[in-house]
Each structure stands twice: as C-alpha cells, then as structure tokens.
C-alpha cells in the first residue's frame, strides 16, 4: 500500500474500475465551465486548459489516456479553455497529512494515524464552517494523502482572496485571540479558554487538537524546547478541561507567547495558498493518486470513513 501505480495499473483502474457516473454531482453539474488539467508522466500537471463539454467526453479521455493524475479547476469560467470570464470559485481548505507541522506519528510520509489526525481536523473545520459561519453545500474529499474541504455555498463562491484568507484564519484558528477587553468599569485580560463562544472557542479547540497530537520534538515560535516538553507532560489536564491549571504549569508569562506560536502553527496545518487561489486546479474526485495508489474520493460519512478500506483500488490487492 502507498506504493506508486504502474502505467498498466492505471490503465486497468480507469478501464475496469473507474466510472464517470461516480463523479460527485458538484463536479458533473456545469462540468463544461471548469478547466481540467492532467499529469501524464508524474512530473506535474502540464497538460492544462482542457475542457469537456459533457461527462461522456471526459470518460473517453480518461479511459484512453489513463493519466498519472487528473485535476479540475475550483473556478467556473465562461471560457475555461482560456481561463477567461471567471464566474465563481469553490472555497477550498487543503489539509495534507504529510505536511502537518504537528503530528503524533513519525511515519515521514502518510500513514493511518496521520490521515486520521487530518480527518479529525477537517471535521472540526467543517463544524466551524457550518456552526459559526452558517455555510452549506460542504463536501469533504479524501485526496490520497490528506483531505480537501470544498465549499460550494453560493454565498462564498464570488468572494475574493482577502475574504477567503480571513475565513481561513477564523476556521483554522490562525490568528492570536484577543486577550484584552474593556467596558465602563475597566480593562481586563481574559484567556481564550475562558470564553466558550465565537472565535475564542474555535481557537481553544484547535489548540487542544494541536497539544494532544504533539510528539514533543516540535518547534513552536516564541517558546523553548523545555516548554514544548512541558506541554506534552501536562496535556492530560487539557483532556480533562483543566486549562487554568495547564496555563499555570506552562507559566503565566510564557503562556501568551505559546498562544501566539500556536496561531502560527495552525496556519501551517492548512495549505493556505490553496484557499486564496481562485484559479487553482484540484485533484479530481474518483481519479487515481498514482504516487500512493489511492483513489481520491468524496467522503460520504466522515464518522465511519476509512481510506484504507474505501479508497484502495482493486489492483493493489492483487499485487505480489
């Protein structure tokens, strides 16, 4: 498993296993408005600006060329063959298990454990997108080495990069939460974990996720290696909701620096460039991730989804 697919295996997958009818509806609808890109030799998607007027033509292409990788644009264009006449773009969050800056495994690539951690993060982000931001039409895609969140809510599809970056900061917990508050009686300092609503709640959840998955060797900007070890040593307190005690153990003066460092790591848990890029091409659901021989597919039930069960193409089981 996770070995590259040979050209023969790719051909077999596209001719015997792959069916264009398995494409998610959000790809099939308005397929003629998306740009497609292909990587035929494993050197990157250099066959771009392809357009398919309907899914039948895409099917013929895939079965004839069995590409190393297939992509479609997150954007819808009037003239996708020239990437002109931009209409709207999906809002995307890309969580790649192999690039997670904090993870509990030491696999060096991808494994069951870091994939599961990536899915856990993705599900929290989906909850925030729905619960806080009130967005709908959200799809989770297993990409082969991680997960994509694809949001097709019409309310966000025409938004520009700056607003998308702002959504990313909120959803990923990538901004240092405000500590100082004031009212008519004075100014007060409140830690994020004492505020169970709004962005502070999101940040607390993401920080919890991070602390519980740390191995102890990570670098967090602004704090020493010793503090990182202290986090790992005391993280059971967080599991039990004892954030106040946890803060005391870390040190009240170090803690604000830790919070700042966490917000920076949170930003790296998601590939931000993908979110702000309105003209990105993204791996096509149902296509083969040939580097790892896994199928990129929509996750219908995230609670039960296991990529090693659902996303392994038939040819892998027949390898010697």
């Amino acid at each position: 498993m996770f070995e590259p697919a040979t050209p023969q295996e790719r051909r077999r997958y596209y001719r015997e296993e792959w069916n264009v009818r398995d494409l998610p509806d959000f790809i099939r609808e308005d397929i003629h408005m998306r740009e497609f890109g292909f990587d035929h030799h494993g050197r990157g998607p250099n066959d771009r600006y392809r357009v398919f007027s309907d899914e039948r033509r895409l099917s013929v292409f895939m079965k004839a060329r069995f590409p190393f990788a297939a992509y479609s644009s997150v954007a819808f264009y009037r003239d996708p063959g020239r990437r002109k006449g931009w209409q709207r773009s999906e809002l995307i969050f890309d969580v790649d298990a192999k690039d997670l800056p904090v993870r509990s495994c030491n696999c060096g690539g991808v494994c069951e454990e870091c994939l599961s951690q990536a899915l856990e993060l993705v599900l929290m982000m989906v909850d925030t997108l729905r619960g806080d931001l009130g967005l709908d039409d959200i799809h989770v895609i297993y990409s082969g080495r991680g997960y994509h969140i694809r949001v097709l809510d019409p309310e966000v599809m025409e938004m520009e990069s700056e607003v998308r970056a702002e959504i990313l900061r909120y959803t990923a917990g990538a901004r240092e939460p405000r500590r100082e508050f004031s009212d008519s009686t004075g100014t007060y300092e409140l830690e994020h974990f004492t505020i169970p609503v709004g962005y502070h709640r999101v940040f607390t959840e993401r920080a919890r996720h991070l602390f519980l998955h740390m191995g102890g060797d990570e670098e967090i900007e602004g704090v020493t290696k010793r503090t990182v070890k202290e986090i790992v040593k005391n993280r059971n307190l967080i599991r039990d909701g004892e954030w106040g005690v946890f803060k005391r153990r870390i040190g009240p003066r170090v803690y604000p620096r830790l919070v700042k460092g966490v917000s920076k790591i949170n930003m790296r848990m998601v590939d931000a460039k993908v979110t702000i890029d309105l003209k990105r091409i993204l791996r096509l659901p149902t296509s083969l991730h040939s580097k790892v021989s896994m199928i990129c597919m929509e996750v219908k039930n995230p609670e039960t989804f296991d990529p090693l069960d659902s996303a392994v193409p038939g040819f892998v089981y027949e390898r010697k």
């Binding site: 729905r130 619960g131 806080d132 931001l133 009130g134 967005l135 309310e155 966000v156 938004m159 520009e160 700056e162 607003v163 702002e166 959504i167 900061r169 909120y170 901004r175 939460p177 405000r178 609503v197 709004g198 962005y199």
Partner: peptide
C-alpha cells in the same frame, strides 16, 4: 445581520472576522 453582508469590510480589512461573535452565519 449576516457576516456575509460585511464582506466589503472584511475585504478592505476594516473589520476582522475573528472580532465578531457568530452563530450559524448571524
């Protein structure tokens, strides 16, 4: 008021999304 209606304020960085309190888009 929905946060979507504040899009222009967010785009021009007059307001941060993390500074407002949200529930189901409101």
């Amino acid at each position: 008021l929905r946060w979507i209606e504040l899009e222009e304020l967010l785009r021009t960085r007059k307001l941060k999304l993390t500074d407002i309190i949200l529930d189901r888009g409101r």
